[in-house]
Amino acid sequence: MALVSEQYSGEYMEAANALSRLFPGEEPLVIAYHLKKYFPVRGIFRVVGYVRAVDDVSFMIPKGKTLGLVGESGSGKTTVGRLLLKLIEPTGGKIYFEGRDITKLRGKRLKEFRKKAQMVFQDPYGSLDPRQTVYDIIMEALKVHHMVPDDPYSYIVKLLEEVGLNETHVYRYPHEFSGGQRQRIAIARALAVNPEFLVLDEPTSALDVSVQAQILNLLKELQRSRNLTYLFISHDLGVVRYMSDYIAVMYVGKIVELGPAEEVFEKPLHPYAQMLLASIPIPDPELAKRKPAIKVIGEPPSPINPPPGCRFHPRCPKAFDRCRREEPPLVEVETNHWVACWLYKA
């Protein structure tokens, strides 16, 4: 494949080749390969166990596209987001950004990477320093990366206008803004250093519906105008469908289904994905009647001692013997549509 050129390491080529079948025709910007993150659970004297927050997941994010990561609390979706930005170190596996293994980056190279990959957090109240004006908040990002332009004021005004704010907001403090406006400031700060990749971790779940739509539309516009690549993390399936080109469904540290958004939503294959979709209340009484009646049972297990075999088997209406013993691999069940379930043959 053309996307693997000689300048890259053999390890990268192995990962890229392995994942090149995932979304054919797409050029990867980010690749996660056998990624693992275990958090130790400490007892009084020693580590008594591990939270397997992310347990061997592989995927890629195509350039200029959005990968939506959905799952319930404790599924590991936020941990994946943090790993991709090197905010935490993986326990195992590799992460490649533009072909470079970021787990090994140090010093200048790391700074270079940090400029290209930014994050927008869930809570716009906690993520902005209350004692800084909007100007200071954005200037700080520029200073850290030695990117202060000749005329910072007009640069910041231009940024604010790009996210739907204006010149009158430059010297105001976060408390003077509503939740939606704060999220716009957080987005402006992320964009200040001209990144290529944004991790959006539940960027609208603290906002009201009417404001949520404004922010989602803004993010879509920015993606188009700046050719950004997004990892969009959310538990809201409606929002994820609206935002994403591709979807990964996570369950207790594993990706159980992966494919183009339309495919996954129109024809979910993994029993968990089917159950999740069936449990979302549909804001349309007509459509709601046509929703498949799937009995929803149980709650997600603790990631400290996940069930053996397929982690979903205790809640799965279709579980059989093999599911209790062996962990199913992620295989291509239909064109471009990957599922980790013993019900399907590759």
Binding site: V209, V211, A213, Q214, L216, N217, G238, Y242
Partner: peptide, 18 residues
């Protein structure tokens, strides 16, 4: 303005202001 998981939506209506 509410995204619906069972339907493809090309543009969400947003309500200006707060």
């Amino acid at each position: 303005a509410v995204p619906n998981p069972l339907r493809r939506m090309d543009k969400l209506e947003s309500i200006p202001g707060t």
